[in-house]
Amino acid sequence: MRRSVIAIVAVVGALLAGAAPVQAAEAGAHGGWVPAPQGGYEQPAGARCDFAVRSEPVLDEVRKLVLDSYPDGSPKRELYAGDLIVKFTNLETGVSKEFDASGTAMIDYGTDGSMTWYVVGPAIFGFRADGSSLPRGIWVIDGVYTMAFTPTFQKTLTMVHGTTDNVCTHLD
């Protein structure tokens, strides 16, 4: 696991620095970096927080790069990077706060609907009750880690180094 994370950090660093490792050279055939806007959403009370919550991007410069595709053209591996600041609002009280989710992620997509995210830096993940290795909430996870999704979206966090912070606690 440690070697995989080190390799991913090296590839991500090289891509962001403009170097051209083999994977990056192959990625040119897929069209290069494109915008990947992160939409806002609302969740009802009890879904992620004890109260209804809204998420809306305040700054969204996220881009993606397809690194590899399946024969049918669907993505096999993608890289996401860019600044992302998200404002969360408690819809019952109006309390809101902005969170940084400007991490870099390489995502491997399985043919069965599973996926694994290899992340460096902060990203935001929602967890339902009994849906993963973290309790229900909206979590800002920062550091070096992987997030594995089953086809039914059960999530398993494997933290190499970093922190977790539940957005819900800041809005209560």
Rank of each mutant, 00 (worst) to 15 (best):
A101N: 05
I107Y: 03
I141H: 00
G113W: 10
E98N: 14
A101E: 08
G137Q: 06
T146G: 00
R128N: 12
M115V: 04
D100C: 07
I124A: 09
S96M: 11
G143L: 01
T146V: 06
M115C: 08
G131P: 02
V140Q: 08
P151D: 10
G103K: 02
T93V: 13
W117A: 06
D130F: 10
K97E: 13
S114R: 10
G113S: 08
T116L: 10
F127Y: 15
M115T: 09
P122I: 01
E92V: 15
F99M: 05
D100H: 09
F127V: 10
G121S: 05
I141Y: 00
T93E: 14
V95T: 15
W117E: 09
V140P: 02
A105G: 06
G113E: 08
V140A: 01
S96Y: 14
K97Y: 09
F99T: 01
T156F: 06
S96F: 14
S133C: 05
A101V: 03
R136K: 14
E92R: 15
T111Q: 12
S132M: 08
T116Y: 04
T150K: 04
W139H: 05
M106P: 01
F149N: 07
I107M: 06
V119H: 01
F127G: 07
I107N: 02
T111V: 13
D142T: 07
V144W: 00
L134S: 05
G103W: 02
L134K: 03
M115L: 12
K155E: 06
E98S: 14
G113Q: 06
S132Q: 08
F99P: 03
G94T: 10
A148K: 11
T111P: 12
V144G: 00
R136L: 11
A148Q: 10
D108Y: 12
V120T: 08
I124P: 05
F127R: 11
M106R: 04
P135C: 08
V95N: 15
T152L: 12
G110W: 11
G137H: 09
G137M: 06
M106S: 04
Y145C: 00
M147I: 13
D108R: 10
D112S: 12
P135S: 10
K155G: 04
D100G: 07
T152K: 11
I107S: 02
D112F: 14
A101I: 01
K155C: 02
F127Q: 13
G126H: 13
G126M: 09
G126L: 09
Y118C: 02
V144E: 01
D142Q: 05
T93N: 14
K155W: 03
D130R: 12
T146H: 00
F125E: 12
V119F: 02
T104M: 01
S133W: 07
F149Q: 02
D100A: 06
W117F: 08
D100Q: 07
P122Y: 05
L91D: 12
I124F: 07
M147F: 04
A123Q: 11
S133H: 04
Y109T: 10
S114K: 09
T150P: 03
G137R: 05
F99E: 01
E92C: 13
T116R: 09
T104W: 01
G137C: 03
F153P: 00
G113M: 09
S133F: 06
G143M: 00
M115I: 06
R136I: 11
V119C: 02
S114H: 10
G94V: 09
R128S: 13
Y109E: 08
M147W: 03
I141P: 00
A123P: 00
G113C: 08
V119N: 04
A129P: 12
T93H: 15
L91V: 11
